[in-house]
Design a protein around this nucleic acid. Structure first.
Length: 279
DNA sequence: CTCAGTGTTCAGTG
DNA sequence: TCACTGAACACTGA
């Protein structure tokens, strides 16, 4: 569920709480699934006493640049989030509902950092698809090295964008979900972009016309930019977005302007689209 | 009780 | 190398 905009919110939260400060205390949950490559003790040892120089994000991957050679890499999976004391966690999924009851430290805590200035940061994950790993050179190693461009920070120029689709015969929806193409796009962003660009999600990626490619690129950039601008708070997404009407898979689902929304499966993922608008 | 959803990776097929 | 399918992972909530 956390796609690029929610991960970017996590990055900002972590940057505010941690950048420039030393990590004084670390507590890790004893969870061999979230800490799948390095034990909780190894991660703890890598972080304690280190200064956080900068918090980076590429697609859905987030990492801390420390004053040492072992940098923590966070992936939120489907239900992970950063939290700081006093700020209720938001979730995009169900109706503006808060995650947890606001207690501190929160439930489903995986790692808890105490900073030298008294600030705290926690990563929670109630479904355990999230991962916390260590990397010496995060950008040069998998999984980050395998990612495509980040649509918020490195949208390629039109010509290169078109080149990246050339020869790809997959459904355009599947290509958008491919993290090796565009990093950070998840299920709802892919559907939103295709809806706004007026493109049938089943179309082969290499079958798009020049005009369609241009619309696709522009909408990809615009949707991501807008969602980040409103800090991934769904109530602040434009009313015209398909996003607000796609949940629940109801047979009677309609857009704000009354067009019927259909649900199909593409590449094993539920796809919401509007046949009368997407050709 | 069953099952969809959510992101990623891997095994297997063509 | 590409494309596709299915499974696995853990858990919530309808």
């Amino acid at each position: 569920m956390p796609e690029l905009p929610e991960v970017e919110r996590g990055r900002r939260l972590a940057a505010t709480a941690c950048e420039g400060r030393r990590i004084e205390r670390v507590r890790c949950a004893n969870d061999r699934i979230v800490f799948d490559e390095h034990s909780p003790a190894q991660v703890r040892r890598a972080l304690i006493g280190r200064r956080v120089r900068k918090v980076h994000r590429h697609g859905k991957q987030l990492w801390f640049e420390l004053d040492d050679q072992n940098h923590p890499l966070f992936h939120f999976g489907m239900a992970g989030a950063f939290q700081v004391p006093g700020v209720p966690a938001l979730s995009l999924a169900s109706s503006g509902k808060r995650d947890g009851d606001g207690s501190w430290p929160p439930r489903h805590l995986k790692i808890h950092l105490w900073m030298e200035d008294g600030g705290e940061l926690v990563m929670t994950d109630k479904r355990r698809f999230g991962r916390i790993r260590l990397r010496a050179e995060p950008r040069a190693e998998p999984p980050i090295s395998r990612l495509g461009f980040d649509p918020l920070t490195q949208m390629p120029p039109m010509e290169e964008f078109a080149r990246r689709l050339r020869g790809r015969r997959v459904a355009i929806k599947s290509l958008l979900l491919d993290q090796g193409f565009a990093a950070g796009v998840g299920n709802w962003i892919a559907d939103e972009v295709l809806y706004q660009a007026g493109i049938d999600p089943r179309r082969g990626a290499d079958s798009l016309s020049k005009a369609e490619l241009r619309r696709l690129r522009n909408k990809l950039g615009a949707v991501v930019k807008k969602a980040v601008e409103v800090d991934a708070v769904k109530e602040r997404f434009p009313r015209s977005w398909l996003f607000h009407h796609r949940w629940g898979k109801s047979a009677s689902a309609r857009t704000a302007r009354g067009q019927a929304i259909e649900f199909i499966e593409i590449g094993g993922r539920t796809t919401a689209w509007v046949p009368t608008l997407q050709k």
